[in-house]
């Protein structure tokens, strides 16, 4: 029905990507309009948009890997560290009411991990954001998932100034999650991701973390790092936390 479809500009605004990105997705088959008018205008089913936007990871991945940077949809966008802190506070309050996390204040481990992953981009990209400053920060209370992404320099570019011997994205992630080093040496920085790994090894948290073409997976109650290569690399970082 005609009232259930929206033009491409509206779809782009809701999803927080550019019209050009939606046209590319159409051509590649990644996300297609429900019909194209005789005048070649694309129209999208509102239900498809809603379904896509409910999958936080898909929305964040699309945003971080889009060739042309656009601010993400307002509900997910933290342009500044202060905005992130404010939203983190609301997130912490929400998870502190979940019974199994409330017990023994276990929620604090979740929020501590989210805080470190979410604060990192602001520390390491200050004054260096390639296009869109800030982060995508979304969470789903029912799926018990948090997604954080940024269009910053990425872990490899950030770390190789401090550690020139780094070979690639995988090498950089290994260092970031294991060695006490930082991109802003000689100051003592960059220990947040080591903390993330330690917390995961002692709690019911799972993490998928991508930067460049390297994907790191950490499973709950384990400190073993599983790596694989992504066919869809991007410059910044993307994290999915299951709690």
């Amino acid at each position: 029905m005609i009232h259930d479809v929206i033009p491409i500009s509206e779809a782009a605004r809701i999803l927080g990507v550019s019209v050009q990105t939606l046209r590319r997705w159409d051509k590649s088959g990644k996300f297609q309009p429900s019909f194209i008018s005789p005048g070649k205008h694309r129209f999208y089913a509102r239900a498809d948009i809603e379904k896509f936007s409910k999958n936080l990871f898909s929305v964040a991945r699309a945003w971080v890997s889009a060739t042309v940077g656009e601010p993400p949809a307002l509900g997910f966008y933290c342009p500044t560290s202060a905005e992130f802190q404010g939203r983190l506070s609301r997130f912490e309050l929400m998870i502190s009411r979940i019974p199994d996390l409330k017990e023994g204040e276990k929620f604090s481990l979740v929020s501590s991990v989210v805080a470190e992953i979410g604060d990192n981009p602001f520390v390491h990209n200050l004054g260096k954001w390639p296009d869109i400053p800030g982060t995508f920060f979304g969470y789903d209370e029912h799926k018990r998932q948090v997604v954080i992404a940024d269009r910053g320099l990425g872990v490899y570019t950030t770390l190789k100034t401090a550690k020139p011997g780094l070979r690639d994205d995988k090498d950089a992630l290994k260092v970031a999650f294991t060695e006490f080093i930082s991109g802003r040496t000689p100051e003592k920085r960059g220990n947040g991701l080591k903390h993330v790994r330690t917390v995961i090894s002692k709690s019911n948290l799972d993490l998928v973390f991508q930067s460049g073409d390297a994907i790191l997976t950490l499973h709950r109650h384990s400190d073993v790092m599983h790596f694989k290569n992504s066919a869809e690399p991007f410059r910044g970082t993307l994290a999915l936390i299951d709690f």
Binding site: E92, S96, E105, F107, S108, S111, S112, A115, E116, D119, V123, K188, N191, G192, H195
Partner: peptide
């Protein structure tokens, strides 16, 4: 204190 992380702690308690 309901949530503490190393970034804040290192700048103060560290």
């Amino acid at each position: 204190v309901t949530t503490l992380s190393p970034s804040w702690a290192d700048e103060f308690v560290g």
